[in-house]
């Protein structure tokens, strides 16, 4: 009997808060972003009047225009203007060298950071899984970056790599090398793309290891011990145990971690901002390592030009398309390679 009961009213009551919030903050934004991305020269705002003043509130609720006006009543109008519908926002961002640089930078960061983090994470997990003493201590240490503030520790990395007196340069000098202009100029030389990217990647790996180690280790601990005992009886060498038992049996976790890391790396933003103290690069080239997300937020912040919001939406959609494509390709690959 219970299987056929209908709880529609109870369900509506229970789902009401979530549905309401999602309607405003999830579903509406999806529609709004897609629509705006295709509106060329978009502008939106509200006319207001309080009797003798009339003003124009823009998209962000900021008064951009105000003039005295003798009016008998309150006038509140709503306008939304655009020049036309089309791919104008998309073509303009693809012509924008900053956006192209953002695409290139993001792609490089993803290609460098994801494999390094996944491989190091895997090796550390295997090492951790093979020891008994101090396992808990090491596990706790490796997890620390996860519970720290991204901005705070990004600032720390910029101090570590400071050219004047950072730990890294002091160490290089003590070893007999000469100082490097990592992210701040040194001895007349400005930091290069390579050194800036290097510092960012070290921070990204540092920040990303914790989660991967946690997932890999809990995956390994659920692998049946019989496989390892069988390998031990046959005195199989360690690397063969790793490639023939651990990796195949861990492949669902590896696939999961790779997909989530790719998505996370494509959304890089806070780490860049933190390392360069609010910019996307060293002072000599403040947009050097701008990312797609950074570009999107920059366009969002510029209120002077009505075209910018449409471009922000277009750029966010490009990011979404890239993430979708990568996810689909990875799922397709993992279907072939993953052993369940």
């Amino acid at each position: 009997m219970l299987e056929y009961k209908n709880d529609i009213w109870k369900a509506l009551l229970a789902l009401a808060p979530t549905l309401l919030l999602m309607a405003v903050f999830t579903f509406y934004p999806i529609v709004h972003t897609v629509v705006t991305a295709f509106m060329e020269g978009y502008s939106y705002g509200v006319w207001w009047s309080n009797g003798n003043t009339i003003g124009w509130l823009d998209h962000y609720g900021e008064t951009v225009m105000q003039s005295s006006y003798d009016s008998s009543g309150n006038l509140i109008g709503f306008t939304q203007t655009y020049v036309g519908i089309g791919f104008g926002n998309f073509t303009s961002i693809f012509k924008d060298p900053t956006f192209l640089a953002a695409l290139k930078n993001t792609a490089i960061m993803v290609i460098v950071s994801v494999p390094i983090t996944v491989i190091i994470g895997l090796l550390i997990s295997v090492a951790l899984n093979s020891i008994k003493k101090l396992q808990g201590v090491f596990q706790t240490i490796y997890f620390l970056p996860y519970v720290t503030n991204t901005i705070a520790l990004g600032l720390v990395f910029s101090v570590l790599f400071s050219s004047r007196n950072g730990l890294i340069n002091s160490f290089i000098e003590a070893m007999g090398g000469s100082r490097v202009a990592w992210i701040t100029p040194f001895g007349g030389g400005n930091p290069s793309y390579f050194t800036c990217l290097f510092v960012l990647m070290v921070y990204t790996v540092w920040d990303g290891l914790a989660f991967k180690i946690l997932v890999f280790l809990s995956g390994m601990q659920s692998i049946d011990k019989q496989y390892y005992q069988a390998a031990q009886i046959d005195s199989t060498p360690r690397w063969r145990v790793f490639t023939k038992i651990t990796v195949p049996l861990l492949s669902p976790m590896i696939a999961y971690i790779t997909i989530t890391s790719f998505i996370g790396a494509f959304k890089a933003y806070s780490s860049v901002i933190a390392i360069f103290n609010g910019r996307y690069g060293p002072r000599s080239n403040p947009n050097m390592l701008i990312t797609v997300v950074g570009y999107t937020y920059d366009k969002l912040g510029k209120m002077s030009n009505v075209n910018e919001i449409g471009r922000a939406c277009a750029s966010a959609l490009v990011l979404f398309a890239i993430i979708m494509a990568i996810t689909v390709v990875e799922l397709w690959i993992s279907k072939k390679k993953v052993h369940y």
Binding site: P29, G61, A316
Partner: peptide, 26 residues
């Protein structure tokens, strides 16, 4: 609901910023 998890949060941020601002909640 699950499908919305695929969408990067950046897409929501743009419009939510406009919504919050136009409600005078900044």
């Amino acid at each position: 609901f699950l499908a919305t998890m695929m969408i990067p949060g950046e897409i929501f941020v743009i419009s939510n910023y406009a919504t919050i601002s136009s409600w005078g909640l900044k």
